Computed example of a mutant assay.
Amino acid sequence: MTLPLTLPRPAEGVKGQRIRHAAAALLSLLLLFALLGPLAWPDHAAQDLSRFLEAPSLAEPLGRDHLGRSVVARLAHATQLSLMMAVLCVVTALLAGTLAGIAAAWRGGWVDTLLHGLSEAFIALPALLVVLMFSAVANGDLWTLYVGLALAQWVEYFRVVRARSGLVLAGPAVEAAGLFKLGPVHIMRRHLWPELRPQLTTMATFGVGTSILALSTLGFVGVGIQPPTPELGLMITEAFPYYHEAPWMSLAPVLILTTVLAGLLALRSKESST
């Protein structure tokens, strides 16, 4: 009798799996904080100067800031705002870039020339410059910042989708589907989407982290969302002058940013390696 051959899982694989599970757990807790935190601490703008730089307590886990505002309330609203803006920007850029890339590869001709030329114009401008231009016009307006962040990212999806779709559409499987008159819906569902999904999922995950970091960078340098609206980068800037008296004020938003970025990188390491 022969026993089935079972190979032990490599130690690196087990360690990587544990890291991904820990990252997923941390991101889940962060998402719950973003969803439920504003409900538990609804008033992020209430000021009480008599509680200037109040130390953390059970009632106020992160204390009060220089204006007597609840730091945990502002952090919860800032986390929710950053996540919502990042997801909205990535979804918009993904849809626009994917549809444009498929249209360019499928139709070809003047459609491909026009869309490719438009993408080259955006590539010539650094993404940060595009965002800064819109943020200068926005003056703290969320929708203008959203448009700027989405425009800075759509070209990445367009280039990847256009290149990959061109290879798939020129393949024998799509040629056979055309001979059988199966239609564009079948080609999209059976051939294009399975090829594009892994790359788009990875790009979208990293895009969320990039959007959050870009939004925080704009707030940190004072050209993003304006006070009193809470935002992670803005909270860091406001807390810096009081770092020695209240270090938790600046460390809390930094920890949120670090958790988001490190968690997303750990989650995507599995698909990137396969």
Rank of each mutant, 00 (worst) to 15 (best):
P4A: 15
L5P: 05
L7I: 14
A11V: 12
A11D: 12
G13W: 13
V14I: 15
G16L: 15
R18F: 14
R20K: 14
R20G: 15
L26N: 05
L31M: 15
L32S: 10
G37A: 07
W41T: 07
P42S: 13
A46Q: 15
D48L: 11
D48E: 13
A55V: 08
L58Q: 11
G63D: 03
A73E: 06
L75C: 01
H77R: 15
Q80I: 04
L83N: 02
A86D: 09
L95H: 03
G97V: 02
A100W: 03
W106Q: 09
G109T: 03
T113V: 12
S119E: 09
V130F: 04
V130I: 15
L132H: 01
A138S: 07
N139R: 13
N139H: 14
Y146V: 06
G148A: 03
G148D: 00
A152T: 01
F158R: 03
A163H: 05
S165L: 02
G166F: 08
V168A: 10
A170C: 10
P172S: 14
P172T: 12
G183S: 10
I187K: 04
L192N: 05
W193F: 14
L196A: 06
R197G: 02
P198N: 10
T202Y: 05
M203V: 06
M203C: 08
S216Q: 11
T217W: 08
G219F: 00
V221Y: 07
E231C: 07
L234I: 01
L234V: 04
I236S: 02
T237A: 14
E238S: 12
H244Y: 10
H244I: 06
E245V: 09
S250W: 06
T259M: 13
V260R: 03
L261T: 04
A262D: 04
S273I: 07
